[in-house]
Each structure stands twice: as C-alpha cells, then as structure tokens.
Design a protein around this nucleic acid. Structure first.
Lengths: 252, 252
DNA sequence: CGGGGCGTTGATTTTCATCAAACGTGGTGG
DNA sequence: CCACCACGTTTGATGAAAATCAACGCCCCG
C-alpha cells in the first residue's frame, strides 16, 4: 500500500528531480539541458510482475530506464527454453542492444512491480546529435555492458557453482550500494530458478550452494531476504577485492 | 613468401581501395568522405605471431581494424590464467570496449602474422562529430558485439561440448564467407588450446570432439586445416539454420 | 639428432545435472 | 476464516558429461 503511493508520486518526477539522475542518462547533461531530455521521456503506468515491456522480435523504437523495481531480459534457446540475459535495477538502461536492428533481440519482463521511463530512440538520437556528452554517455553505457558481458563469459567458462553464486551476490550488493541501499542485506527480486538460469546452474545447485554458504556463515538467507555476513570471504570466492570495512567493490 | 609480398603491398592501400571497405568503418562514409578517415589511420608494420597490439591496462588511445591475419583478446583470471574473450578476423574492430575507460580492459595479441590499421580514438571521435553515419556505424559495431556476447553466454551456459564446437566452426565459416573466402574449407588460426579456452572446454575435450566429428563425417580435420563435409548436420548441432546449398548462415 | 610444443588417446575423478520426493508458503475460492 | 492447491524451494540419490591426470606420437624447429 505504501508502495502504491510511492508509485503514483514517482510517475511524475522530472529528470532533474529524480534521485537517479546521477546514475542515469541525465548524468551527461547540464542542468539546463536536462529539461530537453525530460521532454522526450514518456512515463507509463507501472508494470506488474510478469508483464512484458517488449518481446523479442517487437519493432525497436525505445530504450527504457528502470525507475523502480526490476526487470529481466531473456531470449529463447532453439529448444524453446528461456535463457535470461540480464537483470536490470533502477537507473539501468534496457533495450540498447536492439539499437542497430529493426527488432529487439530479447524480451524484457518485470520480475516485480516496476516503473520505467521510456525514451523514444529516434528522438534520443536527434537529441544526441546536439549533445556530444549525451552521445558519449550512451557509448559509455554500451562499453560497460560489453565489459560486463566479458566478466559474465569468464564466469560461465571458468567459475564453479560456488564462485558463480558468490560473484552474483557481490555484484548485486555493489549495485545496491551505488544506488544508496544497503549492500549488507537486501531482497533478491529474482527466484532461485531465474538465478540458476542466468548463471548456468540448475535450481537444485543454486539451492544447495545457498545452504552451504549459510552453513559456513557467509550469508544469512531467508527466502529472498539475503544478509551478507562475511563479505570478505564471499568476495574472495567471487575473485574480487574488498575495500575497507564492509564496502564492496563492484566486480562488474 | 607470397604472403610477405602481399603484406608489403597491403601496407599502403588506402581505405577507398581496400577490399575490406565494405565491411569495415568506411562502410558508413561516402566515397569523398572516406579520404577524411583515411588521413587519420596509421598503418604500422605487420605483427608477428605472439606480438601484442596492446596489453590489459595500457592507456587507451586507439581502436584497430584487422587488415589481414588474426588476433585474439584475453584477460587474466584472478588465478592468473588467461581467458580468451574473442578472435578477430580481417575487417573486424578491436579495442572498442576500452573506449569509456582510461585503459584497455583486455590484451590483444596476434595469433598469426597480422596487419592492422590503427585509428587514434580522439581523432575518430572528432571525425564522428561531423559524420553522423560514422557514429551510427560505431554504434552498430558495438551493438553487434553485445548481441554476439549474448550468443556466447548462451553457448557457455546451455550448450554441450559438441554444440559448442559446431557453433564455433559454423560461425568461423560464415565470417570467412562474408570476407569472400571459402566457408567449406579453411585454416584455423588458433590452437586447440585457444579454442578450448575460448569455448570453456579442456583441450582434450576439443580434441575428442574433433575426432568424433571426423568419424561421423561432419568435418575433415587435418591439424588446423578444416573442411566442412556436412554443413547441414553441423548447423543443426550448432542450433542454426542452413539456407540453400552449402551457404552457411551466420549464427550470431 | 634432439627437444619442446602441440595434439591425440585412455583411465579415473569430480562436479553438477537430473530424477524424485517432501516441505513451506502464499494466494484463492469456498 | 480456513482449507486446499500450486508453485517455489529444499534435500537426497543417482547418473552423465567433461575435467583432470597420464602417457605417447608427431611434427617442426633449432
């Protein structure tokens, strides 16, 4: 009920007043230019869990910034099962990879109640003609994505189950932290199944690793509620670095 | 010896006369604008097998287009082994993923004698300020990379050894075809070890799959020389589609 | 001729997927 | 409000695929 209220408020927040502006596209723009971006952004009703933002093959027209909630993107394997290609948290841009094609190469679906800002691409492209910094920001987002995928490929080809889950948790934690939430304890928006699908593991394996981590006091998991109790160790497993206190460094 | 001669010739070919211009960056430009691009491109001496183009962590300043030969890119895992992140054939662009950072996120190394065109990034950026089409071409290259990585992640998380190798071979074949070479028979520029590393398989597994494919008359492998004798079947294994005759469709 | 790297083949081990079953929980309808 | 159902999760038992370990052959090079 509280969230219902928030959702209503949020619908009308302008870019310049949005708490995510320092992480999102407006980052590239001067205060006075943000309004320009603001005018082209459409803010729709919230998506309920399970609703699609777009489907694989839909004509490409917009990219989307997540305002609140969470999305997943996925494609169909040739056997028809789904392969999750990413999870998207607030301030992250979805749909960019369709940018040079006629159609979205993945489907995007809300995994909890989710608000997005829609940015029609033709207008974004025009806008970016005038603002080199916006252009560079777009480039940056795509480059980051490429580097993330690189890390993901490494994970999938070299890491074992424990390391995959550790990496995933640390990565989530650091994304939460960047957004001003606790990196110590948070709520997973995806199911064990989705996690396994994304990480290339069977559900049962995911479950077992969680139990083992809990037994070894690395984490405290209660359903989707996660508390990281030994960030140091978890980072070591993930192959990342930990800097002072409990600050978790983004593994990418 | 013949190749030595070619290499010398090639060094001085202008973009407008380059046989790769229809696949490379000039694709985006009008004939008269190509010379503009041409002026900023540096053409160095050929790299010998094993030589590096740049190292992970080197300050980022240029992207490179492969003229001839082949490159691999790789990062170090935290255990210090290398993880190959890609192979690059003529007309393909290397180094773009470092574009939003100060340093290259991967090392790039020649896996056979290789010629590259160096494109200093600051000058490319200036040039792309004036040519929206060049900009879009850069975007396209990055988007394609993201989609390729997506396919690669799918391969790594869902496909078994046979399917991985089949996909790899079909993908190579189609890249050769696009460049005007035979997609039926070609020479692998990478070792079994590098292939396994890239595909997330042990060398021994790669070797065994090759033997099995040969036994089943899918391919004819003699060291690095590969002949695809049953493209249909191989494509089926890879999960791709085959269109008429022996034309192999890029799996991407 | 010798040596080293690369590739192949066989034997064994490990890890994780799969199969099967039970449990908890949240949502729905009676 | 409770009972029941469906779904997500957990746990155990078994099996399969690929990694690892080990040994050998083959070139290619010096």
């Amino acid at each position: 009920m509280v969230s219902k209220l928030n959702v209503r408020q949020v619908t009308h927040v302008a870019c310049r007043d949005c708490s995510l502006s320092q992480l999102c596209l407006p980052l590239a723009l001067k205060i006075e230019d943000i309004d320009e971006l603001d005018r082209i952004i459409k803010r729709g009703r919230p998506l309920k869990k399970g609703e699609h933002l777009f489907l694989e093959g839909d004509p490409f027209h917009s990219v989307y910034a997540v305002r609140s909630g969470a999305l997943k993107t996925y494609t169909a394997t040739n056997e028809g099962e789904e392969q999750i290609t990413g999870f998207y948290l607030p301030s992250e841009l979805v749909g960019l990879s369709g940018l040079d094609t006629e159609a979205y190469p993945v489907s995007a679906q809300a995994i909890e109640t989710t608000m997005v800002c829609e940015i029609p691409f033709d207008r974004l492209e025009k806008l970016s003609d005038d603002y080199p910094e916006l252009r560079r920001q777009l480039m940056r987002v795509m480059c980051r994505k490429i580097r993330e995928d690189q890390q993901m490929k490494l994970l999938l080809s070299k890491k074992n189950a424990d390391e995959r889950i550790a990496t995933f948790l640390i990565n989530l934690a650091s994304r939460f932290r960047r957004r001003g939430f606790s990196s110590q304890s948070f709520r997973l928006s995806m199911s064990r199944n989705e996690m396994g699908n994304y990480l290339g593991l069977a559900v049962e394996t995911v479950s077992r690793v969680f139990t083992r981590f809990q037994k070894n006091s690395l984490i405290n998991a209660n359903g989707k509620e996660i508390e990281i109790t030994n960030a140091m160790e978890l980072c070591a497993l993930a192959g990342g670095k930990l800097v002072e206190h409990q600050d978790i460094v983004n593994i990418q």
